[in-house]
Amino acid sequence: MTTATEAITEYRSWAVEEFRAEEEPYYVPVADEIEVFEAAWNSKIPVLLKGPTGCGKTRFVEYMAYHLNRPLAVVRDGRTEIEDETNLPLVTVACHEDLTASDLVGRYLLEGNETVWIDGPLTRAVKAGAICYLDEVVEARKDTTVLIHPLTDHRRILPVEKKSQLLQARDGFLLVISFNPGYQSALKDLKQSTRQRFIAVEFDYPPRETEAEIVQHESGCDPDVALNLAKMAEKIRNLREHGLAEGASTRLLIYAGRMIAEGVSPRRACQVSIVWPLTDDGEVQRSIEEVVSSIFED
């Protein structure tokens, strides 16, 4: 992840499995999630991250990928290179409702008069020994989730049906999926057979002080503002299930913090980056705005 301080960010591209974080992603642990994740990685147990949106699940995975080192030779393009200890590549797939199995595994493409096989992101991750992070996995089609089953148990195998191949996952490969039980509807729940293949790490928004620290770091706003934002978020989260599907996420707080740091008045910043994104319900909006106006003077 590049830092926001650079004036111009040049366009760059990576092969999906070669993307690595260059700088340490900022992450503040709330409990023992780092130890748990490490242990899971060491024991090759896939991980399920549960938690509301914008509470840091993705950042956590990035952070772990950066920190989990693989002191091994890397085989790439048919050549063996001895690399220094390096952090894990991270392959992130945002799942959507039309995500099919071949989107993950790979497909044939026509090139000239031939068909050429192109690996999908999951296949690439399996081969590269990367962390494969399937974000919002419940959104994907049901058949997709079944595909990952053989990868998640002791076999660690990805069947590539169309090529009649089985791929054994390389060391370092870890499947991480996330889902948000918040907008769980009967339709969008994980099947037990899928759930029970993972260890689950539950995430929630960090406690007020920690969150304030995060907001301050990420947005560059004043500590007071950050603390107030965290306090406000805590209040707004009390409205979960009461007119609000989800509480204000840390991500939104950071947005608000940035807006304030840019000189937008706090009330206005909260309105555009918290109240309005959160809900369309007029009454709930008013309620949240009243909370905002109680905490910020202008």
């Binding site: 209040k235 009390n238 409205l239 009454e283 309620s287 909370v291």
Partner: peptide
């Protein structure tokens, strides 16, 4: 009242 109820719920965290 609904507005205030939500406001109070937000502040107190109780129903």
């Amino acid at each position: 009242s609904e507005l205030i109820r939500m406001y109070c719920k937000a502040l107190t965290g109780v129903d």
